[in-house]
Write a protein that binds this DNA or RNA. Structure first.
Length: 402
DNA sequence: GATATCCCCGCGACCACAACTCCCT
DNA sequence: AAAGGGAGTTGTGGTCGCGGGGATA
């Protein structure tokens, strides 16, 4: 009743996912170089790893499986390690052009190794959730698009992106919205002095956030869109701005704040959990960081517990704060200016932790008076009966009435 | 290997009625 | 605008039945 989980939901999204074999599915005749096959279709090569499902999926199945319902959309996914083909990748080695899990990264880039691999440039690979389009994935894993797919030494990621065939038409059918990259003339009236196309109305903002129109209840994220300026700040009001400023792929890049400007990461950046705190405690954001799409990012640190996986889909402030450190390395110029904002962020983290601690997923009684009434109601085979009629169960009497 | 049967498990529906919400006067 | 009344809606818990899946013959 409360969770609203139907069997269909379970079949489509959860149970199937839960039954995925952890062991990689290797097709006979395929070389290790070609990678492991998708746990779902068994035809395409797997490319992303879903922690919640413990499954390796190709991109098409990834989106099919994780667009089934609101819960499956929360599943946190990331690339598969191209070395062991089992663990989720956490870093991208720019020099070797491979995505590596923590173990393989440690083995390959150990500071104690004699070769120069320890000096390789590495990027943190972020998780994503939701139903990103091919363009969005391309933006997330910008390193894939920046490379030549036709090159002989293409990695699994690059091959996967090249093989990616996702029917964006069906996407609209299923109610999933694409990120509004740039549609001139489609935006609503904008305040003076602002770019019309950079100020979406609330509905378009919801689209930009990737809210799935049909099956995603905005109340679930407890989000007050009318105050989205408070959420994202006036400097970043649309996805157009995002894509004009490096796209989601910029998440992989270390930020260097322009001189004289303060680029404090948004406290609630792209975090639905953070959205939840907006209604009661609006958080002023100063960031130009992207807060967009149906993708929510979280780090791929290896400390994900099962319980955190649920949070991972809506991302964790703790993880975000680590990412923010990557995005905005403090400079001497910024320290003083950002100290106050840091305090604000720490307070937000504290509030988030308290809220997370108090969060309960089990049934909650909204009206105690009704519960008290139901607790004393007489029943017949569990059903309430009219007062005065015969009954076989009285909560006030331990034994049956007859 | 394919089919049939049994058993177990999980979830939705059912019930009455006080509490609550909405609308009209 | 505020108050009152009526109609409609909501939510509460224990039990049953149904359907799916696994185990076994």
């Amino acid at each position: 009743m409360y969770c609203g989980l139907t069997k269909r939901f379970l079949i489509l999204g959860l149970v199937k996912g839960a039954r995925f074999q952890v062991e990689p599915n290797i097709q006979i005749g395929s070389s290790l170089k070609m990678g492991y096959m998708c746990d779902f279709c068994g035809e395409q090569r797997s490319m992303v790893y879903c922690r919640s499902d413990a499954a390796c999926l190709c991109l098409s199945c990834d989106r099919n499986v994780h667009s089934a319902n609101a819960l499956s959309k929360r599943h946190s996914r990331t690339l598969i390690c191209e070395r062991c083909n089992v663990q989720p990748a956490s870093v991208r080695c720019s020099d070797e052009r491979v995505s590596l899990c923590q173990n393989c990264d440690w083995l390959g880039h150990d500071g104690t190794s004699s070769n120069a691999t320890s000096h390789h440039k590495k990027q943190t690979i972020n998780c994503y959730s939701g139903c990103p389009s091919s363009a969005e994935l391309g933006s997330i894993w910008s390193f894939c698009l920046n490379l030549d797919f036709s090159s002989a030494g293409e990695s699994a990621c690059e091959q996967g992106m090249g093989l990616m065939t996702i029917d964006d038409g069906s996407r609209e059918k299923s109610g999933v919205q694409n990120v509004n990259v740039d549609q001139p003339g489609t935006s609503s009236a904008a305040p003076q002095g602002m770019d019309r196309s950079s100020v979406p109305d609330n509905s378009s903002l919801a689209k930009d956030l990737g809210v799935c129109k049909d099956d995603f209840n905005m109340d679930e994220v407890d989000m007050a869109l009318e105050n989205y300026e408070e959420l994202f700040g006036t400097a970043f009001n649309s996805s157009k701005y995002l894509f004009e400023h490096g796209g989601i792929g910029s998440l992989f890049e270390k930020h260097e704040a322009p001189e004289g400007s303060i680029q404090q990461p948004a406290v609630s950046n792209a975090s639905a959990d953070s959205f939840m705190s907006v209604r009661t405690e609006p958080i002023i954001c100063y960031s130009s960081k992207p807060a967009n799409s149906n993708i929510s990012f979280s780090g791929v640190a290896g400390d994900n517990s099962v319980g955190d996986i649920q949070d991972c889909g809506v991302s964790s402030l703790q993880q975000l704060s680590r990412e923010q450190e990557l995005w905005c390395p403090p400079t001497s110029q910024d320290i003083n200016a950002t100290s106050q904002a840091t305090t604000t962020r720490n307070n937000a983290v504290l509030r988030y932790k308290e809220k997370k601690k108090a969060r309960k997923f089990d049934k909650r009684v909204r009206y105690v008076s009704r519960k008290e009434r139901a607790d004393v109601r007489r029943r017949v085979k569990g059903r309430f009966v009219k007062s005065g009629e015969v009954y076989d169960y009285d909560p006030l009497i331990p034994a049956r009435s007859y």
